[in-house]
Each structure stands twice: as structure tokens, then as C-alpha cells.
Amino acid sequence: MRSDPDLAHAAARGSESAFAELVRRHQGKVRGMARRLAGSEATGDDIAQVTFLTAWQKISSYAGGTFSAWICTICFREFLQWRRRQKMEIEFDETAEIIPFDRSADQHEMRMDLTRALESLSEAQRVCVVLCVSTGLTHQEAADVTGWPLGTVKSHVQRGVALLRTRLENANVA
């Protein structure tokens, strides 16, 4: 099986099949990340699609390293742009209260406990938990993606994970 950097180099030379293979490999992770950040499946998929189109345009700038981290950085930037277009709060305020998601009618009434628990976190915690726990980036990679200090990312992940566990336990008890 060809490695991600091999496929990326082939895609940079114009191979659409190599890029399609990269999309196939990473779509789950990127869609999951975008869905969890945006709080909506449809919007998340839109962001993920724009992410891959941007990746195709910029594939020649991929300079090796973890492809996941590279694509997740693009995804996070696309998420921020989407937020900006929504004219919502741009900057993440670490002391901010929990920002509720805008629920559209097409969303399922019954949501999984995991998603519900994730939505109960503060936005900064949610971003860090999504990047590190669900997407699998290291704390350093998440700090690079968000531009936040490493210590801030670590503490958000730690608190977010603890809260997530508590919520899941409560949900299981109920």
C-alpha cells in the first residue's frame, strides 16, 4: 500500500486517482472533525468538501510530515472561515460560556450520547478535544493548528476529557 506522502507527491504531479485515494483514506477523520466542530452533519460535510478542494489546490505545498495534521489544519481554517461567514463570534474566548449549536430541522432527534456530551463542553475545550481525542493529533500538532500555546491546549484537553467522561457516565446511569 502506498504511503500518504507518496500519494500526495503523485497528486501534486496531477494524478487525480492518487488524490482520490487520499480522500478515501482521510474522509472519515476530516468529516468527523468538521461535523463535531460545526455541530451539524450537513455543514460539517460541506466544510470537509471545501477542505479537500483546498487541499487539491495546495497539494504541492505539502512538505511531508503527517498528512493528517496537514489536512486537519486546512479543515480548521475552513471551519473558521465558515464561522466568519456566519458572522458569529470569531475569536475563541477561553472564559466564554458554552455556545449552543444552531439546530436545524434535518438533524436527528436522538443524538448519540458522545455527541451530546461533546456539545456540552466550552468551545475551546471542544476544539481541543476534537483535534486531539477524535482526530488523533498530538498536543503539539493541535497547538500548531489552532495557534494556541501548548500549555493551553493540554489543559483544555485534560479538562474536556474529564468533563466528557463525567457526562458519559451520567448518561449511562440515567
Binding site: 488524490f19 482520490a20 480522500v23 478515501r24 460535510d45 468538501q49 478542494l53 487539491w56
Partner: peptide, 10 residues
């Protein structure tokens, strides 16, 4: 999803 992305690429 992959098909959709590749259509956009084309």
C-alpha cells in the same frame, strides 16, 4: 463523499 469531492476537483 469521495465521488462528490472528485467531481469538484474535475
Amino acid at each position: 463523499f469521495t465521488r462528490q469531492v472528485m467531481q469538484g476537483v474535475s
